[in-house]
């Protein structure tokens, strides 16, 4: 990777944008690596959590927003909890994911994760609550390759009464779909 810095492409702009949007003091990270040290999913990431902050600090917008890391973050908040500089790293991941979606930069290799989020929210939008069967159905349609992976537990779930096929529609489901409309990303 090469980072070019000149008067037209100033590095600080991306950091400022992220800071403004999230209120997270990205500059305050001094790169001690404690977030990476304690991250349960770091072994799967393309950039370590501290490197994601670093990319923001030095203005590598594309690298940060197209990373797989932001999608692999499990939001366990271990990093933010232990950060000596109180940088809200997990919360920063939320903002970067949001920006990545807005700009169409979400990494296609983690499509499973983004599709899951979509299916989940569609179910909420439609019914006001999660209907697990229907959410699962939509997700499996979107990601057919995952169709078989949970089949092993499905029959047992049915037996145990854990898969209800009747979605519960709340009374205010229209209000919910209005919330979705008003909160649509720009």
């Amino acid at each position: 990777m090469k980072i070019k810095i000149n008067l037209n492409e100033r590095s600080s702009d991306f950091a400022k944008e992220v800071e403004k949007r999230s209120g997270i003091k990205v500059k305050e990270c001094y790169q001690c690596g404690k977030c990476t040290a304690g991250c349960p999913v770091a072994y799967e990431m393309d950039y370590m959590p501290n490197q994601i902050i670093r990319l923001v600090q030095i203005g590598a917008r594309r690298e940060a927003l197209t990373s797989r890391t932001i999608w692999l973050c499990a939001s366990c908040i271990t990093c933010s909890t232990r950060c000596p500089k109180e940088v809200m790293i997990a919360e920063l991941m939320d903002v970067l994911r949001e920006m990545a979606l807005e700009e169409g930069l979400a990494n296609p290799s983690e499509k499973n994760i983004t599709s899951f989020h979509e299916s989940f929210l569609n179910s909420v939008k439609k019914h006001g609550r999660i209907s697990e069967v229907w959410m699962l159905n939509e997700y499996k349609m979107k990601r057919p390759k995952t169709a078989l992976q949970d089949l092993a537990v499905a029959p047992q779930m049915v037996v145990k009464g854990k898969l209800s096929f009747v979605p519960h529609n709340i009374k205010g489901k229209d209000a919910i779909s209005r919330i979705f409309k008003k909160c649509k990303p720009k």
Binding site: D94, R97, F116, H117, E118, F120, I170, I179
Partner: peptide, 22 residues
Amino acid sequence: PDWSCCGASSAHATNHKLSTAL
């Protein structure tokens, strides 16, 4: 009465405002 989904991780991971509103 008539509570709705909080949006869970899918909302906060992708849309802060939606997550908050839900």
